[in-house]
Design a binder for these strands. Structure first.
Length: 945
DNA sequence: AATGTCGTAAACAAGT
DNA sequence: TACTTGTTTACGACAT
């Protein structure tokens, strides 16, 4: 034997040098360690059999030398490095970028792998000399570099075909192999240095069924390997998925070389990077004691090849041992059965000597001419050379089974899919079954989370109509009611209170969470509630009746005062209204006096309106009146922009009179029709054009009066109409807005003044007789009340869309009329329909503070806007609510500002206060009437138009 | 304009 | 760790 052989021997020896191995190795060791075996094995990697080991030459098969040597301490026994052999037989091509560190790693890696690899290792071990790690390392790296990218059809790893040939003679050897296997396993455990478990080792340990611990270990190794530069042979297997289109049966070294080069190029390129995992693509792998053979073709011949024997081609050279035929066996993929098979070459009936011409497959002797299926980890022994057939898929499965691998896979997925957040991604992917706590737990939690779905988000359709609106009850009132109704002497727990509120006000069943916070806040802050007793973690809440009673008293007092005030204010208003009506009848008046009366008249007007308001809902009417007043004033200013030489004073007088005339006439007309609502506002909203015409007529009438006929017409109704039309065209969206847009009115956003896009046909404008003021024309707007009920629904349906549109378009200065109408009716209806919560009204009165705030907060019910929103979700409804109420509030508050007559606003407040102060029922009725009236007006208008 | 009320939200702590 | 419960603070809107 040449030096190389010696090397091999030594390597083998080293590989089996572990004590455990030897101890385990009792039975067959002696039998197996015959010289021939040694020779054959050692020869295989030598120069004599260059093809297999020489990567560049073997395209189909890549052999990887294994290093049985287990520890670095054996390095001292270095022998010649086959890699550097001049013959090039064993010289492996190393990746250029592999540095020393990499080598050393590989060294370690290989050493450990080898230990685990083959049972037979031990058998052969004692006769062998320690192997030079370095050499092996070289081989290893070279092998890696020679990876070939081949798409292979996955071999069915599960194929468990035990077509063992019945041969008694195999018994002994089988036992021996088994023993050796055990030995190797133990060895693994001993020498397993976490990090460097080689693929080979893994392959051996793949027997997850029998070696769970090792599997884990393997997985660990695999995991670590991902971070190492060590070539991962299994990766290649992983990639073996489909049978290659090209059947590489040719093992011709030359052809193979070319092919290999080509195929391996990309892989080699990747090798340089230390952290990159080299991948070798192969159908299967033959794990020998000291090297690994990658089956990269669908057909590989196993045989003997002597130094000078180039007469035949051998893919796997098992050495010169005579016990091995030149063409001893072949491994091929049987497409028929869909598996790899091992066929013993030779005539079937040729006499085969056990251990010589046949082969042991899974410890069962296979005679010549026989073919046996190869499944993953099938043990094969030809001559004295054992090896194992490894399928990639199996490894993969094993890998996947292992938690670590799962991690890896996960991490891979993560990096692939979610490169941004590694920690996050990890968590996310934890769905996979992972034994590891850290990762499993989060995963479980994540999965457990779903069960705790935040809360069902109801669509509007899912919510009963009556529960779509937030109750106009303050939290304190709700709580009071709830506790009164459901609480025991011990009190109510928070969750019970929640439930109670949901029961009392189903709105809170459907609305998004958040109100609970308010509930808690109220309980904590409001002195009406007190902790009664403790139960578990929380308290049981009760009422502080004393405090509540005291508070009620105060409220009552206040309300009484307010009522008194309101009554006084009403009286005053009526008186002033009476005066106002006399204004137009006055003849000439001193300009100065007229001027001095402007405020008073304005007050009167406001008070008149306020008087009307007094009979209606405080908020809406207040808002309406102010809005109407403002509108009228603005329109008057606009109409009289052309003063025709008249002095300011005269104009002021004219305006005053015109305003009074308009208000009185409209009011009177409505009154005559039995309408108690706010006709002026209704008219303004429903038909501002007409109101403008009325105003224009009034202005002209007043002008004639004031100027004693000098000026008969200050306003041209035609212009008014034209202006209205123009404005209409300009602002098609806003609805029910004043006709004329005036940029000089800063108090209101333009939208407020934008022309209405209502359905009022223009021809209506021409119905009017321009120039003359015909108050009687107003009557046409006011129909008897009889139709109210029937028609109100029409109005209700026709209005909302527009109203919501307004809200959406101009939430702030929103002309809340329609909204108010709707909401008002909604309120009234809800207040009546909400009898379901009779306690609610109780609470309202009980909890004085509540009723006020409740009205304020939710004011007009938003049923309209909600119903408008249609498919809007509950959450959004809430927001709509907010917007609605807010806009309404804004309206109220901001309308106060522009009103120059403080009295009126004061009056409004008085009234409102009065209302607020406890005349809920009265207010409701009044507002109902108003609504009806207004609705009537609207309907009649719409009908007419 | 200052103050109070109410609703809402958030931060935080403590308990489960 | 997540959730519940309770407290506190802050803010905005509104009313007084």
């Amino acid at each position: 034997m040449d030096g190389e052989m010696a090397i091999m021997e030594s390597s083998n020896h080293v590989g089996t040098s572990s004590p455990t191995t030897e101890t385990q190795f009792t039975i067959d060791s002696s039998a197996l360690k015959d010289q021939e075996t040694k020779e054959s094995i050692t020869n295989s990697p030598t120069s004599e059999v260059p093809i297999e080991t020489k990567l560049p030459k073997s395209s189909d098969i890549v052999t990887e030398e294994k290093h049985p040597q287990n520890t670095t301490t054996d390095i001292e026994n270095e022998v010649e490095n086959p890699v550097t052999d001049d013959n090039g037989n064993l010289k492996l091509e190393l990746p250029d970028n592999l540095d020393n560190a990499d080598f050393s790693k590989l060294l370690e890696f290989d050493a450990k792998n080898d230990e685990a690899l083959f049972n037979s290792n031990e058998l052969l071990s004692h006769t062998m000399d320690p192997v030079n790690n370095i050499n092996l390392t070289h081989d290893h790296s070279r092998e890696v570099s020679s990876k070939e990218d081949i798409n292979i059809e996955p071999v069915n790893p599960d194929e468990d075909e035990r077509e063992k040939t019945q041969d008694n003679t195999a018994a002994v050897k089988t036992e021996g192999i088994k023993n050796s296997e055990d030995t190797s396993i133990q060895k693994d455990e001993q020498t397993a240095d976490a990090i460097y478990t080689d693929v080979h080792k893994l392959s051996v340990n793949k027997d997850t069924e029998t070696l769970p611990t090792l599997v884990d270990e393997k997985n660990n190794m695999l995991h670590m390997r991902n971070n190492s530069i060590t070539p991962i042979m299994f990766q290649q297997h992983e990639l073996v998925g489909q049978p290659p289109q090209k059947t590489v049966t040719e093992n011709n070294s030359t052809d193979a070389e070319t092919t290999q080069r080509k195929l391996s190029e990309p892989i080699d390129a990747s090798l340089p990077l230390p952290n990159e995992q080299p991948t070798i693509f192969a159908y299967a792998r033959l794990d020998f004691q000291s090297f690994t053979f990658y089956v990269q073709t669908l057909h590989a011949i196993i045989g003997r090849r002597s130094e000078n024997d180039f007469s035949h081609k051998v893919d796997v050279n098992l050495g010169p041992s005579k016990s091995i035929s030149r063409r001893h066996a072949q491994i091929f993929y049987n497409f028929g059965t869909g598996r790899f098979e091992l066929s013993i070459i030779g005539k079937k009936f040729e006499l085969s000597i056990i251990g010589k011409n046949g082969a042991f497959v899974d410890d069962i002797f296979v005679e010549k001419g026989n073919t046996v299926p190869l499944r993953n980890k099938t043990k094969i022994q030809i001559g004295q050379i054992p090896f194992q057939f490894i399928l990639p898929e199996q490894e993969r499965n094993d890998d996947s089974k292992s938690p670590e691998n799962a991690d890896i896979a996960e991490s891979e997925i993560n990096t692939r899919n979610l490169k941004k957040n590694e920690p996050k991604s990890k968590k996310k992917i934890t769905t996979g079954a992972k034994p590891k706590k850290a990762q499993t737990k989060p995963a479980v939690k994540k999965e457990k989370k779903p069960p705790k779905i935040p809360k069902k988000v109801y669509t509007l359709e899912e919510i009963p109509v009556e529960y779509r609106t937030k109750p106009t009850v303050s939290y304190s009132a709700m709580l009071t009611t709830c506790i009164r109704k459901y609480s025991t002497a011990k009190g109510m727990s928070l969750s019970e209170i929640y439930a109670g509120i949901r029961e009392l006000f189903p709105y809170y069943k459907y609305c998004p969470d958040g109100w609970q916070s308010s509930v808690r806040h109220n309980l904590s802050l409001n002195k009406s509630f007190r902790k009664v007793s403790k139960e578990g973690k929380g308290w049981l809440w009760g009422l502080d009746e004393e405090y509540i009673a005291e508070r009620e008293r105060q409220k009552k007092k206040q309300s009484e005062i307010a009522v008194a005030k309101a009554q006084a204010a009403q009286l005053k208003l009526e008186q002033q209204q009476h005066k106002l009506q006399q204004v137009p009848q006055r003849g000439k008046k001193d300009i100065v006096s007229q001027r001095s009366n402007v405020n008073a008249r304005k007050q009167n007007i406001s008070q008149t309106l306020a008087a009307n308001r007094a009979a209606s809902n405080r908020k809406n009417t207040a808002s309406d009146n102010q809005r109407t007043m403002k509108y009228l004033q603005e329109q008057l200013v606009i109409l009289t922009r052309d003063r025709k030489g008249l002095s300011k004073q005269v104009i002021a007088a004219i305006l005053t009179q015109a305003l009074a005339m308009t208000i009185n006439q409209v009011t009177q007309a409505a009154k005559n029709k039995g309408i108690t609502g706010n006709p002026l506002t209704a008219l303004m909203d429903k038909n501002p054009q007409h109101l403008n015409l009325i105003l224009a007529a009034a202005v002209n009438a007043a002008t004639a009066k004031v100027t004693k006929g000098e000026v008969k017409q200050l306003v041209n109704p035609e212009t008014t109409a034209a202006g209205a039309l123009a404005a209409k065209a300009q602002h098609s969206k806003p609805i029910r807005q004043p006709i004329v847009q005036t940029p000089h009115v800063p108090d209101r956003p333009p939208s407020q003044l934008s022309a209405s896009a209502s359905s009022h046909p223009n021809n209506y404008l021409h119905d009017k007789q321009p120039g003359s003021f015909d108050p009687s024309s107003l009557s046409r707007f006011f129909q008897p009340r009889q139709n109210a009920r029937a028609t109100s629904s029409v109005a209700a349906t026709s209005v909302p869309a527009a109203a919501s549109q307004n809200v959406d378009a101009q939430p702030k200065p929103k002309p809340a009329q329609d909204n108010d109408l709707e909401s008002e009716s909604g309120t009234s209806s809800s207040s009546s329909s909400s009898s379901e919560s009779g306690s609610e009204s109780d609470s309202g009165s009980d909890d004085g503070s509540a009723s006020g705030s409740g009205d304020n907060s939710s004011t007009s019910s938003e049923s309209e806007s909600e119903s408008d929103s249609g498919s809007e979700v509950d959450e959004k409804n809430n927001k709509n609510e907010k917007i609605d109420s807010e806009s309404i509030k804004n309206n109220e508050s901001k309308d106060d500002i522009p009103s120059k007559d403080e009295n009126s606003s004061n009056d409004n407040r008085e009234i409102s206060k009065t209302d607020e102060e406890g005349h809920d029922s009265k207010r409701r009725k009044v507002s109902e009437d108003i609504n009806e009236g207004i609705t009537e007006v609207n309907v009649s208008l719409e009908e007419k138009l």
